[in-house]
C-alpha cells in the first residue's frame, strides 16, 4: 500500500531524509540568527511587523499542541490571548506589579482558565468541541467587555509606556522573539517525551490510547493549558506593547483563525510548522495588501490561496520541506484523496 509521491522506506531514502532534515535545521538556524541580528539594520516599521509576526508564531506554536499534535480543533484560543492581555494589564495597573511579574500572572490566569474549561470541554469531540471553544471565547470576550468595574469595559485599560521609549521597539522585538524560540524549544522537548507521544496517540485513536494506560484527560488538559501558556504570554506582551487593552480588540476571533492558518499552512503536528507557517501567512498578506490595495480584495485572494493550500497540501509545507513527500503533481493530487485534517 505505497502511496504515490511518498518516499520509500529504503535505507538510502532514510539517510536522504536525515540529510534533508539537517539541511532544514541548518536553514532554520541561519534564519533564527538572521532574525536575532536584524534589529541592527531594520527600520522601526519592519521591527514592529516582525514583532507582531512573532506573537502570531508563538500563538500558533501553542495552538499546535492541542490542534496539531493532539488533534483537537480548538477554535477559541484567542480567549487565552485576551486573558493574558487583561491579566498582565490589570496586574500592572491594580497591583503595580513590574511587567515581567505581571506577564506571568497573565499567563497563569490563561492556563488556569484552560484547565477549568478544558476539564469539561475536552470531553467533547470533533465539531462539538470546536463549537464549544468558539462559544467560550466569545463568552469571555463579552464578560471583559461588560464587567466595567473590573476590566474598564468599553473604555479599555491604558498602560504606561515602556521606558526608555527609544528602546521600546528593541525590547518588544526581542521578547517576542525569545517567546517564539521558547515555543520551539518547548515543542521539541515535549515531543521527545511520553507526554508528546500521548498526544500523538490520542490524535490517532483516543480509545486505543486509553488501552495503553494513558490518562487521556490529563494529557489533553496539559496540551490545552500549554497552548494557553503560549497565547497568554503573547497576549501579555501585546498588551504592554500596545499600551492599551480593549475587549473587542484582544478577543477578536480573527486571532484564532490566524493561529490556525499559520499552523496548518506550515504543518500541524510538526516542530517548525507553525513558525514557518506564520511567515508564509504574513508574507502572503503583506504582498497581497501591497499589490491589491483595493478594498477587501486582498482578503478574498488570501482566502482563495488558503483554500488551494488546504486542498493540495493539507499537511502544510513541512510535508515537503521535511522530505516526507516530494513536491510533485501526483503527490498534490494524492493529497486531495487522502484528506484527514
Amino acid at each position: 500500500m505505497k502511496k504515490s509521491g511518498e518516499l520509500q522506506n529504503s535505507p538510502q531514502a532514510a539517510s536522504k531524509k536525515v540529510a534533508r532534515q539537517k539541511v532544514l535545521l541548518g536553514l532554520v538556524g541561519a534564519f533564527v540568527v538572521l532574525l536575532a541580528v536584524l534589529p541592527l539594520f531594520a527600520s522601526g516599521f519592519w521591527m514592529r511587523t516582525l514583532t507582531l509576526l512573532f506573537l502570531l508564531a508563538a500563538m500558533a506554536e501553542g495552538w499546535n499542541f492541542i490542534g496539531g499534535y493532539t488533534g483537537y480543533a480548538a477554535f477559541g484560543n484567542v480567549a487565552f490571548f485576551g486573558i493574558g492581555a487583561y491579566g498582565t494589564a490589570l496586574s500592572m495597573l491594580r497591583l503595580h506589579f513590574p511587567f515581567f511579574l505581571a506577564l506571568l500572572v497573565g499567563a497563569a490566569a490563561a492556563m488556569l482558565f484552560a484547565v477549568l474549561v478544558g476539564l469539561p470541554v475536552l470531553r467533547l469531540k470533533g465539531h462539538y468541541f470546536a463549537i464549544a471553544t468558539v462559544a467560550l471565547a466569545t463568552g469571555v470576550g463579552e464578560v471583559a467587555d461588560f464587567w466595567t468595574d473590573f476590566t474598564g469595559g468599553a473604555a479599555g485599560l491604558t498602560l504606561p509606556f515602556f521606558h526608555p521609549i527609544q528602546l521600546s521597539n528593541y525590547f518588544f522585538y526581542y521578547i517576542a522573539f525569545v517567546l517564539v524560540l521558547f515555543g520551539l524549544g518547548l515543542t521539541y522537548f515535549i515531543m521527545k517525551r511520553k507526554l508528546g507521544y500521548s498526544w500523538l496517540a490520542i490524535r490517532e485513536d483516543e480509545d486505543a490510547a486509553k488501552m495503553m494506560g494513558i490518562n487521556t484527560t490529563w494529557s489533553k488538559v496539559v496540551a490545552f493549558a500549554l497552548s494557553a501558556l503560549m497565547a497568554g504570554l503573547a497576549g501579555g506582551i501585546y498588551a504592554y506593547w500596545n499600551t492599551f487593552v480593549l475587549a473587542e480588540e484582544v478577543f477578536k476571533i480573527e486571532y484564532t483563525l490566524q493561529m490556525i492558518l499559520a499552523t496548518v499552512l506550515g504543518g500541524p503536528g510538526t516542530v517548525f510548522g507553525p513558525f514557518i507557517g506564520a511567515f508564509i501567512y504574513y508574507i502572503l498578506i503583506t504582498l497581497l495588501v501591497f499589490f491589491l490595495p483595493v478594498g477587501q480584495l486582498h482578503a478574498t485572494i488570501l482566502g482563495l490561496i488558503i483554500i488551494l493550500v488546504m486542498v493540495f497540501t493539507p499537511q502544510g509545507v513541512m510535508d515537503f520541506l521535511s522530505g516526507r513527500k516530494r513536491l510533485t503533481l501526483s503527490a498534490l493530487l494524492e493529497n486531495i484523496r487522502t484528506h484527514k485534517v
Binding site: Y197, A201, E204, A208, A209, M212
Partner: peptide
C-alpha cells in the same frame, strides 16, 4: 493497565501515523 491488564483490541487499532517502533513502545507507556 497499571494493575497489569493489557489488551490487543479488535481491529488492531494501531496508531496509524506513528511508526511500528513507536506503536510497539506505546505498549510500555
Amino acid at each position: 493497565v497499571n494493575l497489569g491488564i493489557s489488551q490487543v483490541p479488535q481491529g488492531r487499532r494501531l496508531f496509524a501515523g506513528m511508526t511500528v517502533k513507536e506503536n510497539i513502545m506505546m505498549g510500555a507507556y
